[in-house]
Simulated scan of single mutants.
Amino acid sequence: MKRAIVIFISLWLTGIGAAVASEVRLKDLVEFDGVRGNDLVGYGLVVGLNGTGDGLRNSPFTEEMMVNILERLGVNVGGEQFRPKNVAAVLVTSVLPPFGRAGSKVDVTVSAIGDAKSLLGGTLIMTPLNSADGEVYVVAQGTVIAGGVSAEGDAARVVHGVPTAGIVPSGGRIEREVDFQLSDLSSLRMALRTPDFTTAERIEEAINRALGRRVALMLDAGTVELNIDATGLASPAHALSRIENIRIEPERRARVVVDQRSGTIVMDENVRISRVAVAQGNLTLTIEEAPAVVQPNPFAEGETVVVPRTTAAIEEEQGTGLAEISPGTTLRDVVSGLNALGVTPLDMIDILKSIKAAGALHADLIVQ
């Protein structure tokens, strides 16, 4: 079994004051209304593959699209047996960044949708990318950099990574801009990435203190509104540049995050455990089948039969007995109480689940 890893994070062990260490910039806590990216998607072809493209019998849409492209370029291939092996149909995705201007370039991602074996060495030909409104905002084209390697012979094949997906760095050119004018806003809302009433109130107070007037108002746990006109600054952009680097100490819910695959446990410093008693032990049940074949003596009447033989055993490993965990006032107390049981990290995950079910773990238990 892969050795499990337990990670306990304690902010006060960094040697820096808790108030200073936990302060975060406003831009890392909120999303500004309207300042967002837009997802784009398109359907295109990657050409120039070394025989690793789509099998056109299994992917007829690739052949149809290739024929359409050639006919638009003036090449008539109607009625011909057109079955190249160096073409692959792909879905192309990208994100139009906020305030992206016409002529700017963005990265695009390509992923094979047919039975192509690899996109290594291929070239994405001109592909329009549409947004949710159906309009074309980006046109993509360029050399694909695949994220894996594959090699095969007559009887074996080795694949490392994912060669059927890759990126085209700066392969998309913005052709249309999003119709959004930040300068026309008279007020702007800030959405907290982790809604919390205390954090929202601290954001409101920090902005008003930094600008010297009441310009921010908490609307709910996830929204703070900024009155642009009341700031007295030249534009919304100037207002955002003044407040986005304000440092605020966010309030967090107590959480315990558990990754069952690796055995990783991450605890927040606010985790508390009430007084509880825990007993832990393992019970192993083993059943083995060892059938025996019995044959008659030579020249004797009879037949060969199989006689079942079963060995069953129950083994109970020595547990820790009944151990008491005192109420934890700090993360260090909680960790010490759990470590006193002398169990492995994987067993500690089960113990944490049981403590949570008993109502003694005062934190959100998140199992991944």
Rank of each mutant, 00 (worst) to 15 (best):
R36F: 11
V75M: 05
R83N: 14
L119A: 06
A102K: 15
L96V: 07
K85C: 07
T52S: 12
Q81C: 13
G114T: 00
S59Y: 05
E63Q: 14
T93F: 07
G34C: 07
S104A: 11
S111F: 11
G100C: 05
P98M: 09
S59W: 12
N38G: 09
L120I: 15
L96E: 07
V75Q: 06
G103F: 11
F99H: 09
G78H: 15
A89S: 13
E63G: 14
G44M: 00
S94M: 11
I69V: 12
D33P: 11
F61N: 15
A102H: 15
V87G: 09
V108R: 03
G42P: 00
K117C: 12
E63R: 15
L91M: 14
L119N: 05
G114H: 08
F61P: 11
V106T: 11
T62A: 05
V67A: 14
L120C: 15
N50A: 15
M65L: 07
P60C: 02
E71G: 01
G51V: 01
G55Q: 13
T52V: 05
K85P: 08
P60G: 06
R36V: 05
G44K: 02
V92E: 05
L56C: 04
T52R: 05
A89E: 09
S118K: 01
L49A: 03
P84K: 02
M66E: 04
R101I: 08
S118N: 07
L91G: 13
T52K: 13
D107M: 04
A112N: 09
G53M: 08
R36E: 09
K117P: 12
V87Q: 10
T109L: 14
V35H: 09
G48R: 07
N38Y: 13
V95P: 05
N86V: 05
G53V: 00
V47R: 03
A102N: 15
L96Y: 11
R83Q: 14
F99E: 10
G114V: 00
R36Q: 09
R72D: 02
V46Y: 02
Y43D: 05
V75N: 03
T62Q: 06
D33S: 08
A112G: 08
D107A: 03
G79P: 07
V46Q: 04
G114N: 05
G34S: 02
L49R: 03
